[in-house]
Simulated scan of single mutants.
Amino acid sequence: MLQVTKPTPSHFGIYVWDVDKMVHFYTSVFGMVVNDRGVGKTFKAPLVFLSSTPDQHHQLVIAGGRPPEATFSTVMQLSFAVPSIQSLRDLRDKAMALGATKVMPMNHGNALSVYFADPEGNTVETYIDMPFYISQPHGDPLDLSQDDATILRETEAICRSDPSFMPIDQWQAQFAQKISITSPKELP
């Protein structure tokens, strides 16, 4: 069971045209596992619940019923944290092999990302956090053909040249203080 002390984003759902195609895409690219599926009693649409971790029943819900005239996705992005720079490369390649388009690697300084459009046009981000903070939005091109050491060295140089730079642990301590001032201490 996910332990939370205040409202915390935990999962998301998207309406799709082709449920099976989209389930195949997300299970193949991200290794997510189908946990449950069926037709909703309230939403009256086919629903497929996917997760990558045993502490969350679902992290992504694929829901049928996206109207055929809905050619523009209102999803700004679906983001997936990954463990390494190599994971960014591997997932980019898997996604492209399964129909992803609009692939865009980007260096945010505080994270390295690869954005792409899934087969139904939803923007997906895969990212790895960096040990740096710089104010956002920030985006430089990311060349994933470089070796990891070069990417990390260039990222640190980009960050250190930004006036807002600080190590991530310093930023986290400042943000933790900000949260403790503005958040309720305990939920009912």
Rank of each mutant, 00 (worst) to 15 (best):
M1H: 14
K6N: 10
K6A: 15
P7D: 06
T8D: 09
S10H: 10
S10R: 14
F12I: 13
F12R: 14
G13F: 09
V19G: 07
K21R: 14
M22W: 01
H24V: 11
S28G: 12
S28Y: 07
G31V: 06
G31C: 09
V34K: 07
N35F: 06
D36E: 12
G38C: 04
V39M: 11
G40A: 13
G40I: 04
K41H: 13
T42Y: 09
F43T: 10
K44A: 12
K44E: 11
K44R: 15
P46G: 08
F49N: 00
L50T: 04
S51L: 05
S52W: 08
S52V: 11
P54K: 03
H58Q: 09
L60N: 01
V61K: 00
V61R: 00
A63Q: 08
A63C: 08
G65T: 05
G65Y: 06
R66G: 00
P67C: 02
P67K: 11
P68G: 08
F72R: 14
F72D: 09
M76A: 14
F80C: 04
F80W: 11
A81G: 12
V82D: 06
V82T: 11
S84K: 02
I85D: 02
Q86D: 14
S87G: 10
L88C: 01
L88N: 01
L88H: 04
A95G: 03
A95T: 05
M96G: 11
L98I: 00
M104D: 07
P105F: 04
N110M: 15
Y115T: 02
Y115L: 08
Y115G: 08
F116W: 03
D118I: 00
D118A: 03
P119F: 00
E120T: 00
E120H: 04
T123Q: 13
V124D: 00
V124F: 04
V124T: 01
E125C: 07
T126N: 08
T126M: 06
Y127I: 06
I128F: 04
I128H: 00
D129G: 11
Y133N: 06
I134A: 02
Q136F: 06
P137T: 02
P137Q: 05
H138E: 11
G139W: 12
D140P: 01
P141G: 11
P141C: 10
L144P: 04
S145H: 09
D148M: 09
L152D: 07
R153N: 12
I158L: 15
S161V: 04
D162T: 01
P163G: 08
P163I: 02
S164R: 05
S164A: 04
I168M: 15
D169C: 08
Q170L: 08
Q170E: 14
Q172F: 07
Q172E: 07
Q174T: 07
F175S: 12
I179R: 15
I179E: 13
S180Y: 09
I181S: 10
T182L: 15
T182V: 12
P184T: 15
P184D: 13
K185A: 15
L187P: 03
